[in-house]
Computed example of a mutant assay.
Amino acid sequence: MKLTLVATLAVLFIALPVAAQPFARPMGPGSMPTFADFDGDGDGRITEQEFVDARSQRITERATEGRAMRGLSEAGDFKDIDTNGDGNLSREELDAYLSRHGQNRRAQSAL
């Protein structure tokens, strides 16, 4: 009985930290980030610093996993994506950029 209780507690101590982690979105080849991936503080807009931080984190994660960095050389600059020039990216601005960027990547893959 004591051994079973100890074993159960050990499993819980191991499993709880894993279960508490947010579910990761599968990042397969060709997957594109979402607005939430960039909006670090969740305020509905992306500052240039949030954009740079999220992009750097994504590049680092992909490099660590040994993944290809396709499309990185064609990646847009924050100021190019901020089409209204207000210093923040809206969901619409980021979605439009990601759509264009994805189309460019698919076109290059077809060559």
Rank of each mutant, 00 (worst) to 15 (best):
M1F: 04
M1Q: 11
T4W: 15
T4F: 15
L5K: 09
A7L: 15
A7C: 12
T8F: 14
T8E: 04
T8Y: 11
L9Y: 08
A10C: 15
L12K: 02
L12F: 15
I14V: 15
I14A: 12
I14N: 06
V18P: 00
A19F: 11
P22E: 09
F23N: 10
A24V: 10
R25Q: 09
P26C: 08
M27R: 13
G28N: 09
M32S: 11
P33S: 10
A36V: 10
A36Q: 14
D37Y: 03
D39P: 06
G40V: 01
D41F: 04
D41K: 03
G42E: 05
R45L: 13
I46T: 02
Q49V: 11
E50M: 05
V52N: 12
D53C: 00
D53T: 12
R55S: 13
R55D: 05
R55P: 01
R58F: 09
R58E: 10
I59P: 00
T60M: 06
T60G: 00
E61H: 05
R62P: 00
A63D: 07
A63L: 10
A63H: 02
E65V: 03
G66K: 01
G66E: 02
G66H: 03
A68N: 07
M69N: 00
M69H: 01
R70I: 08
L72S: 01
E74K: 01
E74C: 01
F78R: 04
D80P: 01
D80C: 04
I81M: 02
D82C: 08
T83F: 02
G87Y: 03
G87A: 04
G87F: 03
G87R: 01
G87N: 05
G87W: 04
N88Q: 14
L89R: 02
R91S: 08
E92R: 12
E92P: 00
E92A: 14
D95W: 00
D95I: 08
A96Q: 10
A96E: 09
R100K: 13
H101F: 13
G102P: 02
Q103L: 14
Q103C: 08
Q103Y: 14
Q103W: 14
R106H: 12
R106E: 14
A107F: 09
A107N: 07
S109E: 11
S109A: 14
L111N: 15
